[in-house]
Structures are given as structure tokens and as C-alpha cells.
Design a binder for these strands. Structure first.
Length: 472
DNA sequence: AGCTGTTTATC
DNA sequence: ATAAACAGC
């Protein structure tokens, strides 16, 4: 049989369950499919950085597949509702008897996949779908009561125990297609940010991802617990875009680390163990998305949080987006996000909490902005992070936890290097004043006064949550 | 994966 | 005088 392998956010050849299946079973060759779906992507708030990155990855993937005799064909549609028919027509045109893909779990994606399965089924074609994104499939872990986990710590305990109990998580050896097809690949849409600074920062291809991982393991992972919260240290892996697009699998990351330290996941040294914990967070947030799909529909995880009275403050929102809040670390972070399409995780928490708590602007506005600007935009992780910061989520920060942006700045950018890199007008301010310049220094630098007073804003944020209990 | 104001401990 | 511990948000 000839297989149609549908690539989505699994843009890789190694450790790709759907592709492996087609290689092992495809006695009449393989056709690869991709579904450019711009209107739907835009409806999901994907911005140019994300779309550019994905299209460059698909371009790379098409070249790699071509070398193996697997032509990549496009089934372009405007919205997901038209995708099943477009794929079926592709399968008919190229006489593919089966469709293989790796599961996506978001509500719209899952509905599209279900409709595709039905369309292929009605047409008498075979369908196989694989769990791929998580190291442990979301449906494999449950609490004592049989529900999906809502709290990270017990989830991570169950996660590790599942591995100890012998769950087979290691990547399977790659299979080669049995038959090469001599058919030209389709020409792809142009990436929207071709030759831009952002696209130069995030090269395409699995080789690049593997080099980044290798370098991270060699240079950074041992000191990761001490360095990971310091944005100026560049001590994090920066693999999030690769993981979001599926250029490299989290299984491959885990296997590479276990091999490098010659240890099972539960016996890794502190540094690599701390980083692996970040991979578990990714598994956790996707597990939460599968168990509690209302978070895909702009709903807070905690139902009662729907009644929070967020402020409508477009000018404050714009000041936050553009890095003009008058809090140096917040502004440096927001400017680095716009310029690079990426943001250090500590700073994601700092700026998210600032928007939700200090400005009392709906976390969904921030979530949308992140989707629009991040190369690594991914619903489960982005939503999880925002709802953590907004105190509306699973295992979220308690509502009274309000980061003091100045304290965070002193603690995590002690020498002010990150601030001076991204707020150049402040570069001449020496010493600890960088965290909280006085009025004269601000005026001289053309840097704004703080948009809100921290103490007052903190109190008002706490009040906003207290109102919920008073029926207000 | 916090902050703040207050009390208590130690020099 | 300063730090550590604690309570409450």
C-alpha cells in the first residue's frame, strides 16, 4: 500500500511514529502532506514569527524527504473545515490507500482530525494515528480518582514512576522507505519574514536542533539550576521553537541527556534532572489540555475566575507590548520579545504577572500577544504559563502572589546586563540604580516614570480577587 | 515558581 | 543593628 503521511507539528524524520509506520508498511512508496491553513492559523493568533519558522521548517523537511523519495505535496485550505476534503483529494490523486499522522490535541485540531478520519474511512482508506508529542501520552496517567492531573507535583511523581515501571519511551530506530517515488515536491508558500533578523536567529533543520542540544548539554546543563533564572546568562536551552514545531522530539532530548550522563531519567545528576523537569512541565500542560479542553476555548481553568473584573486599558496594554511601563526589567523583556521572537522563561513570568496583576489586564490579551510574537507559540504551554501567572489555572500561583518587578530585577539581573542590552537609553546608568532609576535619571534618559505604583497596584490586584468571594 | 509588615533571635 | 522566622495576603 501507498501511505499518505500528514505532517503537522512533527516536522522531522527521526523518531516520527507516523513516518516510521509508513516506512515499515509502505510497499508502494510514501507521499508527504502539509496543510498550509493561513486563515485558521491567524484565527489561532499565530503571528509572522511562528508562521515563518514553520514554513522554513517545512521547506527543510521537504528537501530531506525528497532525498528519500518522499515528495511533499500541499493540501492548502483557508480553514480546518476544508482540510479533510483537501487531504482526501490528495490521497485519491496519488492513490494512497492509507493515512498516517501524529495526534494533535487542541479542540479545533482534534475536530479536524476526527473529520479527516471519517472522510478517509467513508472512502475505504486506512487510518493510523499515533501519540507523539508527550514523552508519556496524556491519556496514560491518571490520579487515584481516575481524573486527569491538575497539580504538577503529583503529576511529575506519577510521570517518573511510569518510566520506572518500564514504560517504553525511547525513540525507535529510524526506518527507511522501501520504495522511492519519482515525483516533484510542491512549491511552498514564502515565509513571511524571509531574511529578517528573527528568521536568522532561528535556523531550520534537525541538525541545528541537535547541535543546540549538544552544546547545551556540554556547556550549560550542569550549572542549569544556578543559571537558568538569569536572563543575561543565556543558560537555557532555547529549544522551545524546535520542540513546538516538532523538529526534535522531547523523547530524543531525554534520550540524549540520559546517554550523555549514562543514567536512567530518575538517576540523573541535579543539573540535567532540573532541565528534564522542564520537559515534564511540557508533558503536564499538554496532559491538562487533553483532560480539560475548555482551556482551548478562552476559558480560565478555574470556572469561578470567569467573574474577574479585568480592566479595559488599551493604552496600558500598548505600553506593556512596546516596553514602556517604566519598570526596566519588564521593558527590556518586552523589547527582547519583539526583537527576537523568544523570551526567557523567568521573564515570561515577570511580564505576564505584571500585565495580569499590576495592570489588571485580562491574561487572554497577553496570551494573544505571546502567540503573535513568539517563534515557539504553543497553545498548551503558553496558556499554561499565562493561567499560572494570572492565578486562574491548574496549580497556579496563589492570587496574592504578586512579583515585585524591581525585586525580580535585582535578584535575576543583578548587574543589570540584560536591562542595558535591551533598554539602551538606560545603558549609562551605573550600579543598582539601573533597577529603579530616579526621576532625574529617567528624564535625562527619556525613560518613562513607572506606569503604576507597585504597592498600590499589588493591593488592587489582591482586591480584584477578593471581590470574587464577596459576590462582587 | 512571592511580598510585606511584624516579631523574635543574635550580635 | 541586622538577620531570621512568621503570619497573612
Amino acid at each position: 500500500m501507498r501511505w499518505l503521511v500528514w505532517f503537522r507539528n512533527d516536522l522531522r524524520l527521526t523518531d516520527n511514529p507516523a513516518l516510521s509506520h509508513a516506512c515499515r508498511n509502505g510497499s508502494e512508496g510514501i507521499i508527504a502532506a502539509f496543510n498550509p491553513c493561513f486563515n485558521q492559523w491567524r484565527a489561532h493568533d499565530w503571528g509572522d514569527p511562528k508562521i515563518d519558522y514553520i514554513l522554513r521548517q517545512v521547506h527543510w523537511l521537504s528537501a530531506q524527504l525528497g532525498k528519500r523519495g518522499i515528495p511533499l505535496k500541499l493540501a492548502a485550505t483557508e480553514r480546518f473545515e476544508h482540510t479533510p476534503a483537501a487531504l482526501l483529494s490528495l490521497a485519491q490523486r496519488h492513490e494512497c490507500g492509507g493515512l498516517a499522522f501524529n495526534l494533535e490535541y487542541e479542540v479545533n485540531e482534534a475536530r479536524r482530525d476526527q473529520e479527516t478520519i471519517e472522510a478517509f474511512d467513508r472512502d475505504g482508506r486506512e487510518i493510523v494515528a499515533f501519540h507523539d508529542q508527550n514523552i508519556i501520552p496524556p491519556s496514560a496517567l491518571h490520579t487515584g480518582e481516575g481524573s486527569y492531573y491538575r497539580v504538577f507535583t503529583p503529576f511529575s511523581r506519577a510521570w517518573m514512576k511510569h518510566l520506572e515501571d518500564g514504560f517504553e519511551w525511547r525513540p525507535k530506530p529510524a526506518a527507511k522507505p522501501k520504495v522511492k517515488l519519482d515525483l516533484a515536491a510542491d512549491r511552498l508558500p514564502d515565509p513571511p519574514l524571509a531574511h529578517s533578523a528573527i528568521s536568522a536567529l532561528w535556523p531550520a533543520g534537525a541538525d541545528h536542533a541537535k547541535r543546540v542540544l549538544k552544546r547545551f548539554i556540554e556547556h550549560w546543563i550542569s550549572d542549569y539550576p544556578a543559571q537558568r533564572d538569569l536572563p543575561a546568562a543565556d543558560a537555557t536551552s532555547t529549544l522551545s521553537p524546535c520542540l513546538a514545531a516538532g523538529v526534535i522530539s522531547t523523547r530524543t532530548c531525554l534520550a540524549t541527556i540520559c546517554d550523555a550522563f549514562n543514567a536512567q531519567p530518575q538517576h540523573l545528576p541535579r543539573g540535567p534532572a532540573t532541565w528534564v523537569r522542564q520537559l515534564v512541565w511540557r508533558d503536564f500542560y499538554r496532559h491538562v489540555l487533553v483532560g480539560y479542553p475548555h482551556i482551548c476555548r478562552n476559558q480560565p481553568f478555574q470556572h469561578r475566575m470567569r467573574r474577574l473584573s479585568w480592566r479595559d486599558a488599551p493604552q496600558d496594554f500598548q505600553a506593556w507590548q512596546e516596553g514602556r511601563t517604566g519598570y526596566p526589567l519588564v521593558d527590556a523583556a518586552m523589547r527582547s520579545l519583539s526583537a527576537t521572537g523568544w523570551l526567557h522563561n523567568r521573564l515570561r513570568m515577570v511580564v505576564a504577572m505584571f500585565l495580569c496583576k499590576h495592570l489588571r489586564i485580562d491574561w487572554r490579551c497577553g496570551e494573544r500577544h505571546f502567540n503573535n510574537t513568539l517563534v515557539d507559540a504553543d497553545l498548551a504551554n503558553n496558556n499554561g504559563g499565562w493561567q499560572w501567572s494570572a492565578s486562574t489555572g491548574t496549580d497556579a500561583a496563589p492570587y496574592f502572589r504578586v512579583f515585585n518587578p524591581t525585586t525580580q530585577s535585582r535578584r535575576f539581573d543583578p548587574d543589570g546586563h540584560f536591562i542595558r542590552d535591551w533598554c539602551q537609553e538606560l545603558a549609562d546608568i551605573e550600579g543598582p540604580a539601573i533597577h529603579e532609576p530616579d526621576a532625574v535619571q529617567r528624564r535625562r534618559a527619556g525613560y518613562p516614570e513607572p506606569i503604576v505604583d507597585h504597592g498600590e497596584a499589588r493591593q488592587q490586584a489582591i482586591n480584584m480577587f477578593k471581590m470574587l468571594d464577596q459576590g462582587g
